[in-house]
Design a protein around this nucleic acid. Structure first.
Lengths: 129, 129
DNA sequence: AAAGATAACGATAATGATTATTGTTTTGAG
DNA sequence: CTCAAAACAATAATCATTATCGTTATCTTT
């Protein structure tokens, strides 16, 4: 069986990701971790983010920004993408299990989960003008 | 004001996209259009798909496949991505306007639309075994 | 505590999708 | 028909991500 070894790089990556409410991409995480581990390689950041998201430790977000974003919280939840500032925000909204059931009925397949991304203007940008 | 000119390339790209129920990426569209216009350039395909999606003629889909997929139908609707065959399917399910309202209330922002992608096993793959 | 096996690393090259550039051709308004 | 602008084909450039490979760190077994 395959084992897993710890490293300070892994810990730092996870700590940085968990320490922000933004939903950063690999490059931002790299820049932050580098303040603590100046010799870390960008490949190491990508490799560990991939593994973390594979084993469900973190989540990978596919929004339409051209780069992948990561979320330290693995529990499924929804996001709002602001078309003004580009920010990605968690929505305090219950996961709608009923949607999966409705989709299952309609497709005849087996729907397991869903990703729901809202688009619009965030509260801060709305208030800004 | 800026004008727009017609071309047989534009027509062919749109015709190919509208002629399939799959949700192809730029490369597949390129390969199909090339049967009719062997000298068309891949850049032309990308350029026109971008413009079409900007002016709302078609839709761009951000699923987690690494490449962008396109949908000849601009009317908002939902999709199912099969984790077995990778296929992307339209769901005959009503667009849930209520979700946008709920999200607006919760964020204090202005939510305009949402993208909802279901993940699971399509009917064909389920029946295959 | 030392040794050995191997996972993880850093550096860097490679890949693959998408975008930009440039000189030429096509379109359509006047 | 003329001419300016839009669109094109060809191709180079960019950018995010993945793969490679020789070295280092971790962890298990003595």
């Amino acid at each position: 069986m395959s084992t897993t070894k710890n490293s300070k790089q892994k810990e730092a990556i996870l700590r940085v990701l968990r320490g922000t409410k933004t939903h950063p991409n690999a490059d931002w995480i790299y820049s932050q971790v580098r303040r603590e581990l100046p010799n870390i390689s960008l490949g190491t950041v990508y490799r560990n983010l991939s593994r973390f998201s594979e084993d469900g430790t973190i989540a990978k977000l596919n929004i339409g920004t051209g780069t992948e974003h990561f979320d330290g919280t693995a529990t499924p939840h929804y996001h709002l993408v602001c078309r003004q500032c580009g920010g990605i925000f968690d929505l305090p909204m219950a996961y709608q299990t009923g949607l999966d059931q409705a989709a299952s009925t309609v497709t005849g397949g087996r729907v397991e989960q869903h990703a729901l991304v809202f688009h619009g203007i965030c509260a801060a940008c709305r208030d800004a003008h």
